[in-house]
């Protein structure tokens, strides 16, 4: 591996992630589910994968606050933004007004951080009946895009503002899909992680490998074998995040330990002659899930190989003071 890539990791990246939306749109409950912390804890810095600190700004949605962000604190809030996550409540009664607020936020952001990515989460989708969800979502996204386009044309902002829309609900895996995608763009050295997962997967004859972040259980990176691509379940990554996160909470109820503490070390499942899988603690900040073809010997050797591979993924945990030094000595 080229040494300069590793050095780049050592620099902690401070990216500001703005989480905005009208009051009551579900920002805080969303955040507390993903990062499993209690509501009252100030989460402005979320540690994610050791070297990546998400500078998460959960901006209160009450109108008085929004006023304030847009005027006195405009520079302070909207400069140096890496990602803006804007949450819309699908059940909102005053869509016109929501859009107006949204446009003024976008205008402030474009002014101070023109390169920031914008994610639009259409939230509380569970409140819409199943068969109407797709249509309602497409409709709302079109409206947001239209408003954004109107704004960019009027203000003479030259490059296209790229919106990435997601339909979300805290009651299913959709939330994990959106957040995994947001996180994906922020993780440094993604290509290195991906290629290493690939070589590990090939060696152990795996069908699929998922790398989870320890507390949020968001998928950081994944690798799927050619055969594994045949799996018809398209949303399996976020489903696994959701399943494991839920189970983590069940365990915390059983053990009586805090919700965000580490809950399990290993889970293995051998489904007879269908498949085997295991989820194990990998590096300090990650869990590894490996799906394998059946076979006792294959399973055991894969477990050992993953333990050995741990060493090559140590860089995921980033430098902690002292540790990096002793490693080099």
């Amino acid at each position: 591996m080229p040494p300069d890539v590793r050095n780049e990791v050592k620099k902690p990246k401070k990216k500001k992630v703005l989480l905005m939306g009208k009051s009551g749109s579900g920002k805080s409950s969303m955040r507390s589910i993903i990062f499993s912390a209690t509501i009252d804890i100030d989460l402005s810095h979320v540690k994610f994968l050791g070297n990546l600190t998400l500078n998460l700004w959960d901006c209160g949605g009450q109108e008085a606050f929004t006023e304030n962000y847009l005027t006195q604190q405009r520079v302070h809030v909207f400069s140096n933004v890496g990602v803006l996550i804007y949450v819309f409540d699908i059940e909102s009664r005053d869509v016109e007004r929501d859009m107006a607020t949204y446009v003024s936020i976008i205008s402030a952001m474009v002014q101070y951080s023109p390169t920031a990515k914008v994610y639009v989460l259409i939230h509380k989708m569970d409140l819409i009946t199943m068969h109407a969800r797709e249509a309602v979502f497409v409709d709302r996204v079109r409206l947001v895009q239209q408003k954004t386009a109107e704004f960019t044309q009027a203000s003479g902002f030259n490059s296209e503002l790229d919106l990435i829309p997601f339909a979300t609900s805290i009651w299913d895996q959709s939330l994990y899909k959106a957040w995994a995608s947001i996180i994906h763009d922020l993780v440094p050295n993604l290509s290195v992680i991906e290629s290493q997962l690939g070589s590990l997967g090939t060696i152990i004859e795996a069908e699929e490998i998922l790398l989870f972040e320890r507390t949020s259980f968001l998928v950081v990176s994944s690798w799927t074998s050619e055969e594994g691509l045949g799996n018809p379940t398209g949303d399996r990554q976020e489903r696994m995040s959701n399943i494991l996160k839920h189970f983590k909470q069940s365990i915390s109820r059983f053990t009586g330990t805090p919700r965000n503490a580490e809950q399990f070390i290993l889970m293995e499942h051998k489904a007879g002659p269908r498949f085997s899988m295991f989820v194990c603690k990998f590096t300090t900040n990650t869990y590894l899930m490996v799906v394998l073809p059946p076979g006792e010997a294959r399973f055991n050797s894969a477990r050992f190989n993953c333990q050995i591979a741990r060493e090559s993924f140590k860089f995921l945990d980033g430098p902690t003071p002292g540790q990096g030094q002793s490693g080099r000595a």
């Binding site: 399990f264 290993l266 059946p294 006792e296």
Partner: peptide, 17 residues
């Protein structure tokens, strides 16, 4: 493959922290 597995029935185990 049938001979490679130890059991034809589902077997699972997990270890709590």
């Amino acid at each position: 493959l049938e001979d490679q597995v130890a059991s034809n029935w589902a077997e699972s185990c997990m270890v709590l922290s």
